[in-house]
């Protein structure tokens, strides 16, 4: 049996006395699209950020294609054993942020080739060719030399997706990718994400877009107060919510 694309075991995170994540475990097989739902404050974004160590989890383990991200404790503080390993694994765990987070002093093209050239060591020419293909894929071929500030939010988010794809990631993490967008711009970003799902990309998507979760995800997870409250195939989950909390959440969202 091959290792799953991503496995996390017992992820916990506390900020001071407040425990935001109370031990979350999940597995994503290659090609899975996992939609992570939850009210604000349920810890879903923190969970995503613990996977690539933007937040250091208080406890728990992450495996990427069977490779464990090794952690150690130093004077009561958990930290990675080898920051090179972390950097290498992060490069395979591309993230798309709610606020796009494009590097504002670089053009669209420079944003996309930055990681491949400087982290993966891809020759610049090759990286540019690939970036051009990715821009075509997200429908922004004519914007390669623009600076992010001169693009709309939806365009910026599509560039951010192209930037993530350029790393040829094993798993893509989406942190509420459409929440900062004007309603009329949400569709263009979701369309790109849908296409990625159809290609068989492994994706973890924290979202408020119920339709996306229901129609696109292969697995839906509902987080409540830092714990997995319900999970399963979206068709079952949305048709028969098992818990009161999920029922309440669904009725609020509709």
């Amino acid at each position: 049996m091959t290792d799953p694309a991503l496995r996390v075991e017992n992820i916990r995170k506390s900020f001071g006395d407040h425990e935001v994540l109370k031990g979350i475990s999940m597995t994503a097989e290659k090609g899975d699209v996992v939609a992570i739902l939850g009210a604000s404050g349920s810890g879903k974004s923190t969970f995503l950020r613990c996977i690539n160590l933007l937040e250091t989890p208080t406890d728990g383990t992450v495996w990427l294609k069977g490779e464990e991200m090794r952690m150690t404790s130093h004077r009561g503080e958990r930290r990675p054993v080898d920051h090179r390993q972390v950097e290498r694994m992060r490069s395979k765990l591309a993230m798309v942020f709610q606020g796009f987070n494009l590097w504002s002093h670089m053009t669209v093209m420079e944003n996309i080739i930055e990681g491949p050239v400087h982290v993966l060591g891809t020759p610049r020419r090759e990286a540019r060719d690939k970036a051009a293909a990715l821009l075509a894929k997200v429908g922004l071929s004519d914007r390669a030399e623009y600076y992010p500030a001169h693009l709309s939010g939806g365009q910026q988010q599509r560039v951010a997706i192209a930037r993530a794809l350029a790393m040829e990631p094993d798993v893509m993490l989406f942190d509420e990718p459409t929440s900062a967008l004007d309603p009329e711009l949400v569709g263009e970003v979701l369309a790109v994400m849908r296409a990625l799902a159809d290609e068989g990309r492994t994706m973890l998507v924290v979202t408020h877009e119920m339709a996306f979760a229901r129609d696109v995800s292969s697995k839906t997870v509902f987080l409540n107060k830092g714990e997995i409250c319900e999970q399963g195939a979206p068709a079952d989950l949305f048709r028969n919510p098992q818990t009161e909390q999920f029922q309440a959440f669904l009725s609020r969202m509709n």
Partner: peptide, 21 residues
């Protein structure tokens, strides 16, 4: 902007590279 630094971290750029690039 904090997010730009986070994006660099998430891309796997080293501390040094984040500073210089």
């Amino acid at each position: 902007p904090k997010g730009e630094v986070e994006a660099a971290i998430a891309t796997g750029i080293s501390k040094r590279g984040r500073l210089s690039r």
